[in-house]
């Protein structure tokens, strides 16, 4: 768009500052998901913030899409709301069409398509999808805002994603360690690790804190858990 100060700086009036409209906001928040042999755990903090102020300390950022699929979404909250509302509508349409709920890998592919549909005005959202696949095995899918999708066993996303991922790489992926043998990760250990990881995120990232809302997905259904974090 044409604007005086950007393109004709010699005509710009000093002092008269125009507020430019910015359609995106960074509302912070972190998600961590870990998949095991017969379960998946996903947790997200409950702080919704903008800059140095906190909108609310109790915003759930996990969305149950079916009995075995949960989406964690952080970033631009207005985009998150829109995207998840659309997703929930698409889940319902699939159920009416096929008389069964969508499998987690199918949801994962659909989410990728829905994100890429908005390639040139993206949903500014960091998505982590967790659930059980068709064989009942835990799975985690992570995305970039424009729809790149990757399946893995553990993933950290959101404002503290870059701080947490190396920690998970070390503790779950057993990276940079010698003389270790990989053993299946028990659910209790995954849950304890998830909490530990969030405690350290809350220490360093101002956009992560207050509480973690955790969902544990097993063949028996989805269990809820809440865990307090520091509130400053």
């Amino acid at each position: 768009m044409l604007n005086v100060s950007g393109n004709f700086p010699e005509y710009a009036v000093p002092g008269a500052k125009q507020v430019r409209f910015e359609p995106y906001a960074d509302n912070g928040g972190s998600v961590v998901a870990i998949a095991g042999d017969d379960y998946a755990v996903i947790g997200a903090d409950t702080r919704l913030s903008t800059g140095f102020s906190i909108y609310t300390r109790e915003q759930k950022k996990l969305f149950k899409l079916s009995e075995r699929t949960v989406l964690g979404a952080t970033g631009c909250w207005c985009d998150t709301l829109t995207l998840t509302r659309l997703l929930q509508a698409r889940m319902q349409m699939y159920e009416h069409d096929h008389n069964k709920s969508m499998s987690t890998p199918a949801v994962a592919q659909m989410l990728s398509t829905m994100l890429y549909y908005k390639r040139f005005f993206p949903y500014y959202v960091s998505n982590v999808l967790a659930g059980l696949d068709a064989d009942g095995k835990g799975c985690v899918y992570s995305y970039d805002p424009i729809g790149h999708c990757e399946r893995s066993n553990y993933r950290a996303g959101g404002s503290a994603g870059a701080q947490l991922q190396p920690l998970l790489d070390n503790q779950i992926g057993l990276k940079n360690m010698q003389n270790v043998t990989e053993v299946p990760l028990p659910r209790e250990k995954a849950l304890a690790l998830l909490k530990d990881v969030f405690i350290s995120a809350a220490e360093r990232d101002i956009y992560t804190g207050d509480c973690i809302y955790i969902l544990i997905i097993t063949a028996n259904g989805i269990q809820e858990e809440k865990f307090e974090l520091r509130k400053d």
Partner: peptide
């Protein structure tokens, strides 16, 4: 709700400068 469509619920809400001084 703000101008972008960012929506949330809470027990106490103050917008504008009140977010810093009233909340």
């Amino acid at each position: 709700v703000d101008k972008l469509g960012t929506a949330y619920e809470d027990a106490a809400i103050a917008t504008g400068l009140g977010a810093y001084m009233a909340t």
